[in-house]
């Protein structure tokens, strides 16, 4: 450490003055340009747009009577789920009924 007493000066917040700094988009762009030259690149994680992909990637090709199609469609809409959810539930019930 230098000096006989490093604590001899009391902190005086009023002496702390901010200097004007340019924060316009042009300045930021200039700063980015220099940064890239020195290998300081964009590292912010990219946000994905839109809804997340559904995990339901399996597909069945079921042709049903028009009234059944309408009822399934209405039920899915009313519950706010995919039609595949209803098929999964129906399949679970079918498997359960075969076990009993």
């Amino acid at each position: 450490m230098t000096g006989p007493n490093p604590f001899s000066i009391a902190l005086s917040p009023s002496k702390l003055r901010s200097k004007p700094k340019d924060s316009t988009p042009q300045t930021v762009a200039r700063s980015d340009e220099i940064a890239e030259k020195h290998g300081f690149v964009e590292r912010a994680p990219k946000k994905r747009r839109g809804r997340k992909p559904s995990p339901r990637t399996g597909q069945v090709h079921a042709k049903v009577m028009p009234n059944v199609a309408r009822e399934i469609s209405h039920e899915a809409s009313a519950r706010g789920v995919q039609q595949g959810v209803l098929i999964e539930e129906a399949w679970a019930l079918y498997k359960a009924s075969r076990k009993s």
């Binding site: 700094k21 924060s23 930021v28 980015d32 220099i34 940064a35 300081f40 964009e42 590292r43």
Partner: peptide
Amino acid sequence: VASRLVSRAISQ
């Protein structure tokens, strides 16, 4: 790390 965030902070 060497990131653009560093250079932007330095600019201010």
